[in-house]
Amino acid sequence: MATLNTAANFSDPDKRYFRAFSPGDDFYEALIDAHRELSDAQSALLNARLILLLANHIGDLNVVREALSIAREDV
């Protein structure tokens, strides 16, 4: 049974990275840029749609349930 991967996992097959922090920083920048100029309500909608897309891509409900459970810890 697949389990949720919580190790650093970002990569870009088209790019050679020289620093370990760079792929994660690329992701984070893209994420923040996606929200630029949006109202809070629009941002919340973008996040919801993004989660739906990514969850469908993962597909395995055991993995999705594990992520949901971690995301809810201490919230």
Partner: peptide, 8 residues
Amino acid sequence: PFARALVN
């Protein structure tokens, strides 16, 4: 660990 890598 993945989140530690994102702390900037």
